[in-house]
Amino acid sequence: MSTGYLFLLLLPLVSAQTYHWGPCPSPKVQPNFNFQQYLGRWYEIEKLPVHTEKGKCIEANYGMRKDGTIQVLKSRFYKDKVRWAEGTAVIPDAREAAKLAISFSYFTPYSPYWVLTTDYTSLSVVYSCEDYFRLFHVDYAWIFGRSRFLPPDTVRYAKNLLASEGIDLFKMRPTDQMGCKDN
């Protein structure tokens, strides 16, 4: 099967996402990451498109489970109701604790979920990438806040950080957090 034909088959899966030729990049992550400080609720401020994350009022809540894995509860308001997804995150290598891996199904492999920077109290910038046979990759990026809205300078700082790591932000869009209720 030619790579062109393979790409045409996969194109509908990634058309909304941000894809590029070649393997995934490897941006720098938060040094000395402390996951205990990261726990709790984060509100999605902006993101590169993710086909499973449509809607508004998107947030993620991180908590520790007794077995040492991390529970990830994501919620969003979509089609007139709150929708929940529960995932599991792990830290594959404690020496690089900011490089988490996350899965929202027993049937899917863990995907990278890298914290590029956080101050733990207001801002988090996260990056992920899916590599397809090292021929092309799909970028995902999120800007999170501890509150539903961040100052424009903070969002600009986060976007500059992503851009400095070579991440294309052309499709990055704000998440609607207007009129949301805390659960």
Rank of each mutant, 00 (worst) to 15 (best):
M1N: 02
S2E: 13
T3L: 13
G4W: 07
L6V: 14
L8K: 10
L10G: 06
L10N: 01
V14E: 03
V14A: 00
A16E: 15
Q17I: 11
T18N: 12
H20D: 09
W21G: 14
P27H: 05
P31N: 08
P31G: 02
F33L: 01
N34D: 13
F35E: 06
Y38C: 00
Y38V: 03
W42Y: 04
I45F: 00
K47E: 13
L48N: 03
V50K: 08
H51R: 13
T52W: 15
K56E: 13
C57D: 12
I58V: 11
G63E: 13
R65D: 09
R65N: 14
R65I: 01
K66R: 15
G68D: 07
I70W: 04
L73Y: 00
S75C: 06
S75N: 07
R76A: 05
R76D: 01
Y78P: 02
Y78D: 11
K79Q: 15
K81M: 12
V82P: 06
R83W: 07
A85V: 11
G87Q: 03
T88W: 06
A89T: 07
A97S: 14
A98N: 02
K99D: 02
K99P: 15
A101Y: 08
S103H: 10
F104E: 04
S105P: 10
Y106K: 14
F107K: 14
T108H: 09
P109V: 06
S111F: 07
V115I: 15
V115A: 05
V115P: 08
L116V: 01
T118K: 03
D119H: 12
D119I: 05
T121D: 09
S122K: 15
S124A: 15
S124R: 01
V126E: 03
S128G: 12
E130A: 14
R134L: 11
F136Y: 08
V138W: 01
D139L: 00
Y140M: 13
W142E: 09
I143M: 04
R146P: 00
R148V: 12
F149N: 10
F149D: 12
P151K: 04
R156H: 05
A158D: 00
A158M: 01
N160G: 08
N160E: 12
L162Y: 03
L162C: 01
S164Y: 10
E165I: 05
T175V: 11
T175M: 12
M178F: 07
C180T: 03
D182L: 00
N183K: 08
